[in-house]
Each structure stands twice: as C-alpha cells, then as structure tokens.
C-alpha cells in the first residue's frame, strides 16, 4: 500500500525552480527521512503535499487519494516547520480546537494522553504564549497526532529540543510506526534519521540525489570505507614495497607500526590489503572497518 506518491512534482517561484520534478513513493508503515541542506526544497515539498502551497506542475496522491483533496486532510497530520501557536489558547484548548477542525474531536482523556506522550502533561492548562521554543515544538507534534491520522508529516520535529525530549520524541515516532502509521520526517540531525528511518532520501538543489535504506545508500553511494589493520612487525625490506602497493590501492594512507590505516572505495579491496600484508611476512592481528555513516554520505552529496 502506498502512502505518498508524487510524479514530476515541481514548484517554481517565477523563473526560479525550488522543487524540480520529484518522483517518489513512500509505502505505508514507513518512517521516511527527508534530508537536505537549508534551501534544498524539503519544506517546499512537504508544503505542497499538505496543501499549504500549490504545486506548479506534477501530481501527487496521499493514501491513494489524488491531491489536492480536502477529504484526505482528516487522515493526515502535519507539524509545520514553524512553531507558531495561538498565544491565547492553552495546550488543551489547542488540541480540542484543532482536532475538532480535523473532523475528529478529541476527548479530554485522549488529549491528556497525547500531552503525556510528548511530555507536556504538566502544561495542559498553560497558555501557549508562555511556552518555550521546545514546548511549542512538542505541542506541534501533539497537534499533528491528536486526530489519530494515518500519515504524519513532521518537519524537523526535534530541532531545539533537549536530549531527554529528543529521546521521548524518538520513542513516540517508533510507537506511532508500531501502530501502523506512516511518518514522513525531515531533520538536520543525521544520526536521528539513521536511527529511526526505514528509508531516506537526500535532496539536493530541488531534486532527490539519493534514495534508499541505509544499506542501499551505502552500496549505491560512491562513499569510502576506512580500514584500520593491526599487524605484526613487517620486515624493513618489505615495507617500501608494501607502501607503494597500498598507495595505489587507496587514499589517506598512514603506516604507523603496528597499524596501517587506509581509505578504500571498494570493500573488495580490504581482502587484497590483508593478503598484501601477509605476503610481506606479517600476520594480520585485527581489522577495523568503519562503514560510511549517513553523515559521510550526506556530506559527499
């Protein structure tokens, strides 16, 4: 089942294209991470899907309903990137008003439960004008889930939150996924995306530059692998020959006995390096392979 499908979705302001013909499919039940530098077009893309702005061209469908369509709105939850709330309303009033507007008025108990989930249970009757930035963020998340939507858009849900709150939101996101919800989130916290998301898309200059799960991103990507090998002493006569061979095998070579550290592009090279060391009449004692993190992949994009 498909939760989000876009075909050549484009947004331009005058002659300036912001989102350039994105084709994307997000399956139901996924936690989909959407990454990109500032100005890459992430928020514009979410804003098109959620009806905040209209696409210049292309089509999209949410939960099988072609957009823009108001009927699907009660089935989606949105936490916009901007944390402005009604200053005169309390957290509880926000939840009641906006859930009613979604067509699914929330009872007092469910409101309290949602506030507990985001860690605002003690601030239910506090006016939003007195909320800190982090509290506004949390209430924004609560508002996105109050009407029990099937598809939830979270635009940078944890930015500006303290470590404890971040963990709570991570728990909430995985809890929502376990309840069959689809989550489409953007974040600048790459470790968070790597930890939570089942699939990730990296957006660059209005286009999707890479897409897949972490394994796919690692394998598809021309990212490098850093290898650190501990070995027994290598005879001096063999050292120059080995160094010359290693220089041709990889980059960032560092030979400081008893370690050889090298960066390679292909994991098949690792076995070749081990063999080369062994051929120099040395034993390989330990091999450490550092896989590329999402951060490495993101920075290379």
């Amino acid at each position: 089942m498909i939760a989000i499908e876009t075909k050549q979705l484009t947004k331009s302001y005058g002659a300036v294209p912001i989102v350039k013909g994105i084709d994307l499919i997000v399956e139901k039940g996924e936690i989909f991470g959407f990454l990109g530098r500032n100005g890459a077009g992430k928020s514009t893309f979410i804003n098109m899907l959620t009806g905040i702005i209209q696409p210049s061209s292309g089509t999209y469908a949410l939960l099988g309903v072609n957009g823009p369509n108001d009927d699907v709105k009660e089935r989606i939850g949105v936490m916009p990137d901007y944390s402005t709330l009604y200053g005169s309303l309390t957290a509880l009033e926000h939840l009641k008003f906006l859930s009613a507007l979604s067509g699914k008025p929330a009872g007092k108990e469910w409101c309290r439960e949602v506030l507990t989930l985001v860690g605002l249970e003690e601030h239910a009757r506090k006016k939003a004008a007195k909320f800190s930035f982090g509290m506004k963020k949390k209430l924004g998340i609560a508002l996105a889930i109050i009407h029990d939507p099937e598809l939830i858009f979270l635009d940078e849900p944890t930015s500006g939150l303290d470590a404890e709150s971040v963990l709570r939101i991570h728990k909430l996101i995985t809890w929502l996924q376990a309840r069959g919800k689809t989550i489409f989130m953007t974040s600048h916290n790459l470790a968070e995306v790597e930890k939570l998301c089942t699939r990730i898309a990296i957006m660059k200059e209005g286009k999707i530059a890479s897409i897949g799960n972490m394994e796919e991103l690692r394998s598809f990507h021309r990212s490098t692998i850093k290898v650190k090998i501990k070995h027994s002493p290598i005879p001096v006569s063999e050292q120059i020959k080995l160094q010359q061979w290693l220089e041709s095998a990889g980059t960032d070579l560092e030979m400081k006995a008893p370690y050889v550290t090298i960066t390679v592009e292909d994991e098949k090279k690792i076995a070749e390096i081990i063999r080369a060391i062994q051929q120099c009449r040395a034993d390989v004692l330990r091999v450490e392979v550092k896989e590329p993190t999402l951060e490495d992949i993101f920075l290379e994009e």
């Binding site: 959620t50 009806g51 905040i52 108001d70 709105k73 009660e74 989606i76 949105v78 916009p80 901007y82 402005t84 709330l85 009604y86 906006l98 507007l101 979604s102 067509g103 508002l143 009407h147």
Partner: peptide
C-alpha cells in the same frame, strides 16, 4: 502572517 493558518489549511478546506 503568524503562520497559524498552516494549522488550519492542513486540517480543513480553505473554503470552510
């Protein structure tokens, strides 16, 4: 202006 409209337009129709 204050972007609270984003909460509204993502929940119900603009006509409503």
């Amino acid at each position: 202006h204050e972007r609270t409209m984003r909460f509204l337009v993502t929940r119900t129709s603009r006509t409503s």
